[in-house]
Amino acid sequence: MQQRKTVIRRRENLEGYLFIMPFIIGFLLFTAVPICVSFYLSFTKYDILSSPRWTGLSNYIKMFTSDRVFWTCFKVTLFYAFVSVPLKLFMSLMVAMLLMKPKLENGIFRAIYYIPSILGGSIAIAVVWCRLFATDGAINNILGTLGLPDDISWLSRTDTAIWTLIVLAIWQFGSSMLIFTSGLQQIPTELYEAARVDGAGKIVQFFRITLPMLTPVIFFNLVQQLINGFMAFTSSYVITGGAPLNSTLFYSVYLYQQAFQFSKMGYASAMAWFMLFVVALMTILLFKSSDRWVFYETK
């Protein structure tokens, strides 16, 4: 009896593995193997045309000690991620709350607000963004009609250029908005009713019920968006090209330049691994901190 059960279980396991085989094969071929190769390449000098040559730690040493642009783009990326992500989460939470009531038009609005998330990474939007923030572009026009200075050269100033990219990132709040929406819907309405009976106003309800109940969702969004923020590429590459003075040069764009413009695949691989290390570290810290501020109802 016992034996037959294990046979059945084994067969079930086999079937299960068969079902996930397509993913596993794809993952091994297109993710796991390239990752290992890139780790090896990070210790070599490799220009694609000739075979890689072992150079030990020299890529890493150069990266940390003598490449000033490396640290510049690292700082730019940190700034971009840490500024754009909280703003984006705030924005998406606000919109999600506005569109909470299950009315038809709210569904339509949610769909409309989601569109930027689909379009946002596209080249067309990047080009539109260039036009919007040009000196004679729409943003300055609007500022002009409001009686504000209308000759700001957004893209040529080191202090403003990065903000055009941050605004673009915030604008793409759709996916985190959807996650917030479902999170909000999970909060039991009894809690609000009880609070109302106790005489709590809307603001108190938000801080005492909505926010605590939402922390798991905020945590999830934060981790996901932060990782996305570190990986950002298109906007910097297309809109500003890193200019002016590398003030908008994202890490991934610099990595791309090293890899494909200067054919330094080894160096670029080393950069990729450092980025992975930073992202992993950031994620671990977030998880560690989550005990203090993330509230799981089930615990």
Binding site: F27, F30, T31, P34, I35, S38, I123, A124, A126, V127, F220, V223, Q224, I227, F230, M231, F233, T234, Y237, V238, S252, L255, Y256, A259, F260, A272, M275, L276, V279, A280, T283, I284, F287
Partner: peptide, 28 residues
């Protein structure tokens, strides 16, 4: 588990980003 998966995504992220830019450069 989620975090590991995300990290994996990060790593391939650079690759796929690079591919899309081939046309990006042209369209821009």
């Amino acid at each position: 588990a989620v975090a590991t998966l995300m990290m994996a995504e990060t790593m391939c992220g650079c690759g796929s980003a690079a591919q899309t830019t081939e046309n990006a450069a042209a369209d821009s």
